[in-house]
Design a protein around this nucleic acid. Structure first.
Lengths: 221, 221
DNA sequence: CTTTAAAGTGAGTAATCACTCACTAACGAG
DNA sequence: CTCGTTAGTGAGTGATTACTCACTTTAAAG
């Protein structure tokens, strides 16, 4: 448990330096693993296939990663942290509680930012989504570490705008859920359902933001 | 291909009679498979484990299902069809193009109806969501058979209310996407993210419907 | 150059995999 | 009762699995 916590903290802290002190072959291994995991799923990918694709002996994989699951976690855990990093880092300049004058500015920035991230790391995010339900280590990282912090933080932001009269009276969790649904709905459709479609991101972001703003505005009269 | 089509049609037609001419042991096999598939995922479930949980010899599984994948498909395919059946059956009395006077009545009915279905078949829907990306047979059933029909049908419904001036001017696909996002967002949160939470479905449905109606209403002034 | 530790190798291993097959049991039709 | 078909069995099979280990190669420091 202490080891997991340490691992998670370290992966959070090194946000910039990726593939830092990795061997050439180790990078090849990661690339091959990401490719095949995303394509066939973790459980039906064999270490021999990864080694083959990476142009490496099978033993080399186990020199760097104790087990196959270790390889998976070393791929997924950092991205999982980074995916929610903007919500958990207190001193991040981009998204701070009071930085945005209007809720819609906050929404726009957040949606642009996270969409960009998912587009960039699409295969790993796909692996993440598929494997979280089956690996207790990832589940606990999500349910115990990430969600409470992120949820609390977002709830405070929403309550802020709500108390200003910008949002309808409603339990903050429900407001949060509907906002996130609308945003994730687009990101998911855009990146996983129809990645080939010729999307106009700015236009769609505007639509979603307007949808949320009108849908959650205080009811007039 | 013809065989698949036949299989899919037949599974669509027998909407009522489930476990019709199944042996006791065959039912046990299906139940065990659903349990373990939902729990550990298809790929990391062994046929021997299914047999053990079902209290059956391993050979019995292969008497009824040619392969392990055959077992999966016989579980997932029918539910996949039924999940979208209300949208594809032309003569279904519950949800017809012109039956609902208001768009919000349509939304309410649809959301209630599909939520009930997902609650009822939660484990199989979970299996479905996880396995669709990795099995071309399921993918094609979704992308080529189900989605075009359902999408077209829903688009027509939306266009209908749009032309009446009930919905904002916007590409129907975008309207559809945002409506579905909001609805699925709740169903997903309710059934998979926090199934333990004490949900008040009627209240939440009302929230989501209002969210959609206000978010997609024609802009005043 | 020498030393040393880490990186890389690939044959080997026990376990497990999906699946087969020769066989028995059950059971309704004639 | 007899026959034929289907349901059910479980030991057996070859392939594949994640992982090990004794070994070689690489490379940087002294």
């Amino acid at each position: 448990m202490a080891e997991e916590m340490e691992q998670w903290l370290s992966s959070l802290l090194r946000l910039t330096d990726e593939e830092e002190k990795m061997t050439e072959k180790q990078i090849k291994i990661i690339q091959a693993a990401v490719d095949i995991f995303a394509d066939k799923g973790y459980a039906s990918t064999s270490t021999s296939e990864i080694a083959q694709r990476a142009g490496v002996a099978e033993g080399t994989i186990f020199r760097h990663y104790k087990t196959k699951k270790d390889l998976l976690l070393s791929i997924v855990a950092p991205v999982m942290s980074k995916l929610v990093a903007p919500f958990v880092l207190r001193d991040l300049h981009q998204v701070l509680d009071t930085e945005y004058e209007q809720f819609e500015d906050f929404l726009r920035a957040m949606m642009r930012n996270r969409l960009e991230f998912v587009v960039k790391h699409a295969p790993i995010v796909k692996i993440m989504l598929h494997e979280i339900p089956f690996h207790p280590e990832l589940q606990s990282q999500f349910k115990e570490q990430l969600f409470p912090q992120v949820g609390e933080r977002l709830k405070r932001i929403i309550t802020h705008f709500q108390s200003r009269g910008d949002l309808i009276e409603m339990p903050p969790f429900a407001l949060l859920r509907m906002s996130v649904s609308a945003i994730m709905g687009y990101i998911f459709t855009r990146c996983y359902l129809f990645p080939e479609h010729d999307w106009n991101d700015e236009e769609e972001i505007e639509r979603v933001v307007n949808f949320i703003m009108h849908g959650l505005a205080p009811r007039k009269e």
